[in-house]
Simulated scan of single mutants.
Amino acid sequence: MRASLALHLGLVAVLFALNFVLPAYAHGNIARVMTLAVYAIGYNIAFGYTGLLSLGHAMFFAAGMYGAGLLLRFTDAGAVAAFGVALACGAGLALVTGLLALRTAGVSFMIVTLMFSQACALAILYFAEYTRGDEGFVIAAASRVVAGHDLGDAQVRYLAAWALFSAAFLFSLWLVNRPMGKVLVAIRENEPRARLLGYDTFRLKLGALVISGMVSAASGAGYGLFFGYAGASFAGVQYSIFPLLWVLLGGAGTVIGPFLGTLFMFYLIDLSSGITDAYMLIAGVALIGLTLFAPQGIAGELRRRAWRGLP
């Protein structure tokens, strides 16, 4: 346990130190990676630890982004209040979705979550008078200020993204080591047996989905506040697929895996796009190779081969 804690705290410390040494381009990229990794962490709680394969998590990311963005666009509530509203939007939407979707399982659950997500995406387009539809809207710089610090400033943005990532990352580590986390893994591995042991699996899965939705919404709100934009593309199907890929690549059911997967895929696409316009072909070949030779993901292979106690 001490070695695991040291590893995870070490990553947090390294990311903090990088703020002072990275060149401008990499500095902005890592801030973006940390923000999106929070989304992957939220997805990992539902899929990696509980076994809920969702194809609709973009609705939670978008709920956080638009919950914060619309509040700031039409009121003077402030960034902190907007972030709180975003968390409430993500948790509330996840609760409603879970109460209905968790009555199904497997492929049916995937389809229901996808349908909910598509409904949310269409709602964003339908209410274009407020959301600006496909065009999206810029979140005013004056609204993106916390305690006198402008979130648009590169240094402040990086440290804010680091703080958000660190909170989600360490919360995930804490959760999976708590009794609830252990039971979620038991549900993932054998739900009928967990139910036989007396656990209310519906309530626990619902709780996991609400936590997952809230963490995903925190990422969406952070992305909007840090980078100053909210757009309908973030509610599309591709943004439901991305966290699944990040988690699978990094290692589903590991705490550090979502960050590794997000970092790997972000830079894979970034570097490939600098070589050719067909960058997705290069990315696809690399992803297939990683899937074939490291089917449990980067952290999953590390746990299988060298460190069985890695959470």
Rank of each mutant, 00 (worst) to 15 (best):
Asp134Ser: 11
Phe60Tyr: 06
Val107Asn: 05
Arg144Tyr: 03
His149Gln: 03
Gly98Cys: 04
Ala82Ile: 00
Thr113Phe: 14
Arg103Cys: 06
Leu122Ser: 10
Ala160Ile: 01
Tyr130Ala: 04
Ala101Lys: 10
Val80Ser: 06
Asp134Met: 03
Ala63Arg: 01
Gly148Asn: 15
Glu129Leu: 06
Leu95Ser: 13
Phe74Pro: 14
Arg157Gly: 09
Arg132Glu: 05
Val145Ala: 03
Leu151Phe: 00
Arg157Trp: 08
Val85Arg: 02
Val112Gly: 03
Ala147Ile: 10
Leu70Ala: 03
Arg103Gly: 04
Val80Gln: 13
Leu114Thr: 05
Gly106Ala: 07
Arg103Tyr: 15
Ile111Cys: 08
His149Arg: 15
Ala121Arg: 15
Leu125Arg: 02
Ala77Met: 03
Gly90Asp: 00
Ser143Thr: 07
Gln118Ile: 05
Tyr66Phe: 01
Asp134Ile: 04
Gly64Asn: 00
Ala121Cys: 10
Gly92Arg: 07
Asp76Asn: 08
Ala63Asn: 04
Ala160Leu: 06
Gly84Ser: 03
Ala68Asn: 09
Arg144Trp: 09
Val138Tyr: 13
Leu102Glu: 12
Leu72Ser: 01
Phe61Ala: 10
Ser166Phe: 09
Tyr66Val: 00
Ala123Trp: 07
Ala79Tyr: 06
Gly148Asp: 11
Leu125Ser: 15
Ala154Asp: 11
Asp134Pro: 14
Gly152Glu: 02
Leu164Glu: 02
Leu164Cys: 04
Val112Trp: 02
Leu159Lys: 12
Cys120Gly: 15
Gly78Phe: 11
Asp150Met: 10
Leu151Met: 08
Ser166Cys: 09
Gly148Gln: 11
